[in-house]
């Protein structure tokens, strides 16, 4: 019985790591080298199928799909990580005090957060980006705000649980100031809950980001992004299915890899891997 769980945890980490590794490798490579310039168009090489010269073929502008995929993974990773960072900051600043102080401040903060969650997230992000003008940075902060309340909830429920513990009571009796209690005593102990939420957040944010760039409101052309590559190639997809297959695969690899890793962490936690 015990044996099986250990195995399943390992399988999650290994497959997740491999899938995520592929995308991260693409990202690292793209920083230094791409076989062709990802944004240079060339009429002579339109819609070529995959070959030794163009590993993943070329698109309707004659751009090398492999180079574009390398470059797109850069944006996907950048946007998801910085968006989650913003959401984490929002979540920490709202969820922790709400859980710790309780009472009126808790009610008000959570009511605000819940009202933000009432908007279908993608709608909020789309409109925010549309109004502020589509650009990568606007996507990042819009997604950060949309995902903030989710983290606030995780922080709040974790804080509610931890603040009842004896060592917190002890610290309070000793007259430690609340900010220090939250920062030094509660925050580090929330990691086991925040970590899987962060990894899932990265995956969900990528789902949103790709949908937004599919609609043309994400990373702006001529820069490559998975969503935009998919929407651009939709018209050619029966003639040139490689235009759909490769970006779609990379996108799924990234999301699935993150998801598997979070699942691995979850199983690990519930098996007593980390004391809760």
């Amino acid at each position: 019985m015990n044996r099986r769980y250990i195995d399943s945890r390992r399988i999650f980490f290994i497959t997740g790591g491999i899938l995520l590794g592929i995308v991260i490798l693409a990202f690292l490579v793209s920083l230094f080298w791409t076989p062709y310039d990802p944004n240079t168009t060339n009429a002579a090489t339109r819609l070529l199928p995959p070959s030794a010269e163009h590993l993943m073929g070329t698109d309707n502008f004659g751009r090398d799909v492999f180079s574009r995929i390398l470059s797109a993974s850069k944006y996907t990773i950048f946007i998801s990580f910085s968006g989650v960072a913003i959401a984490l900051v929002i979540g920490t600043l709202t969820g922790l005090p709400a859980g710790y102080f309780g009472g009126i401040s808790d009610r008000v903060i959570m009511l605000l957060m819940n009202s933000v969650m009432c908007f279908p997230g993608i709608l909020l992000a789309l409109v925010a980006v549309a109004v502020a003008g589509p650009s990568m940075f606007n996507v990042v902060w819009a997604l950060g705000i949309v995902f903030g309340p989710t983290f606030a909830r995780v922080y709040r429920s974790g804080t509610l649980e931890i603040k009842e513990r004896d060592y917190i009571l002890h610290a309070r009796v000793m007259g430690v100031n609340p900010v220090r209690i939250m920062a030094a005593h509660i925050f580090p102990n929330l990691m086991s809950q925040i970590l899987p939420a962060t990894v899932i957040g990265l995956a969900n944010m990528t789902l949103f980001e790709s949908a937004m760039s599919y609609l043309g409101l994400g990373v702006q052309p001529p820069e490559a992004s998975f969503g935009k590559m998919l929407s651009d190639s939709q018209a050619y997809m029966t003639r040139a299915p490689w235009l759909i297959i490769f970006p779609a695969l990379m996108l799924v690899f990234y999301i699935l890899g993150l998801y598997f890793i979070s699942e691995g962490i979850r199983v690990n936690n519930s098996r007593g891997g980390i004391v809760r």
């Binding site: 939709q234 997809m237 029966t238 799924v252 699935l256």
Partner: peptide, 21 residues
């Protein structure tokens, strides 16, 4: 596990590709 990770619009594109071809 696998289906959870596929964005709906990517799934749609794949479905369109499958049904049409």
């Amino acid at each position: 596990h696998v289906l959870f990770a596929i964005p709906p619009f990517v799934l749609s594109l794949v479905m369109i590709l499958l049904t049409s071809s």
